[in-house]
């Protein structure tokens, strides 16, 4: 499952009854860096972001165009499937609502794809491998397509609150 979930304003879980730490996780104060390959070196003059797939007019932004889009800042807890969690990480970026603004599509799923070849299906509130580090586009698709880790043992959905780490969880 990888339904398009607009925006990062999901249901909050900081009610008194529920802990902030999902099951099986521990809190870190440093910032572990995970990498499945070398860091891509993309000159900003060649960088683009695309929205493609099940869409009449694919959209493409250069770096300069992308930086002119409205940005917002969000503060979120992140939960890595390797069991560390980090609270209150601050992100600045372009909302998926802005990327999808005015787009007509029947697609119910997405593939994020990256410089460096990484892929995953979307995104917010799930384990952090669902967030591609060097994202270069989003493909709108009619059927869910497991990505780099989802084809190889990792859970297709990946909800940290249900501890969906591996296949069968």
């Amino acid at each position: 499952m990888g339904f398009i979930s607009r925006g990062f304003r999901g249901k909050r879980r900081d009610t008194a009854s529920s802990s902030r730490l999902p099951p099986g996780q521990y809190v870190v104060t440093d910032y572990p860096v995970l990498s499945a390959g070398p860091t891509p070196r993309i000159p900003l003059s060649e960088w683009t972001f695309v929205l493609e797939g099940e869409i009449d007019q694919p959209k493409k932004w250069t770096w300069e165009e992308f930086r002119k889009l409205p940005t917002e800042q969000v503060t979120k807890d992140i939960h890595c499937v390797t069991k560390w969690s980090k609270f209150d990480t601050v992100w600045t970026g372009v909302s998926i609502d802005t990327i999808l603004d005015g787009v007509e599509t029947a697609a119910e799923y997405t593939v994020q794809f990256s410089y460096g070849g990484y892929t995953t299906n979307l995104i917010p509130h799930l384990y952090f491998w669902k967030s591609a580090k060097w994202i270069r586009g989003i493909r709108l698709v009619n059927e869910d397509q497991p990505g780099f880790w989802e084809v190889n043992g990792y859970n297709n959905y990946g909800d940290p609150w249900r501890e969906q780490r591996y296949w069968g969880d």
Binding site: V33, L34, G37, N152
Partner: peptide, 11 residues
């Protein structure tokens, strides 16, 4: 080999 990842990646 990249081991700082959810799994081991061999390139």
């Amino acid at each position: 080999v990249y081991m700082n990842a959810p799994g081991v990646v061999v390139r």
